[in-house]
Amino acid sequence: MSFQDSIWLTTLVGITGVALVFLYVISQSGRQEEPSAVQARAYALRRWVFGGLIALGVVVTGASLRPFPIAPQHTLQPAPQVIRVVGHQWDWQVDSGPIQAGIPVAFEVTSADVNHGFGIYDADGHLLGQSQAMPGVTNRLVHTFTQPGKYRILCLEYCGLAHHGMILEFDVVAGAEEQS
């Protein structure tokens, strides 16, 4: 199951859960009960719902922010591979040279004109990671390709008439360790 699959599943479960709660309450709406009794029970239950959501939020926050998902932007330690990327209306200018799988690569992403979105897609069309490409700003995206093969860069920030044409294919080769 990919990361996107787990996000999709979590979302569907959440939406279905909300829908079921609504359907249950609607199914009960035809009966009548003293409002004060309903309120007393509902308010007691709400404390648990509130507490549960807080607990869930704390756990997810802790789990999702460690390690921090964005690479340090101002590090003195150079990445093993550095690729400079410049977005233009409407193409990508990317440093030439092989990108090796299994070794972190730091994409230093900027733009020569307007905002673009630097999205890395694998051969199956899955988005692996992204950063904004903004004029006057350099965003450093660190990614480790696990497999050699064909990859694509797609523009993920609307940038004008040929936004949808900003696609560049590139190769990732086997790393030195894999080759040996």
Partner: peptide
């Protein structure tokens, strides 16, 4: 229902690690 259910994918997308693969899709 629309408001409560609709914010679920919104909140999930606000998680930085999720946003990395969902933003601007």
């Amino acid at each position: 229902f629309g408001w409560a259910a609709g914010i679920i994918p919104a909140i999930i997308d606000a998680t930085i690690s999720v946003n990395r693969v969902m933003h601007n899709t």
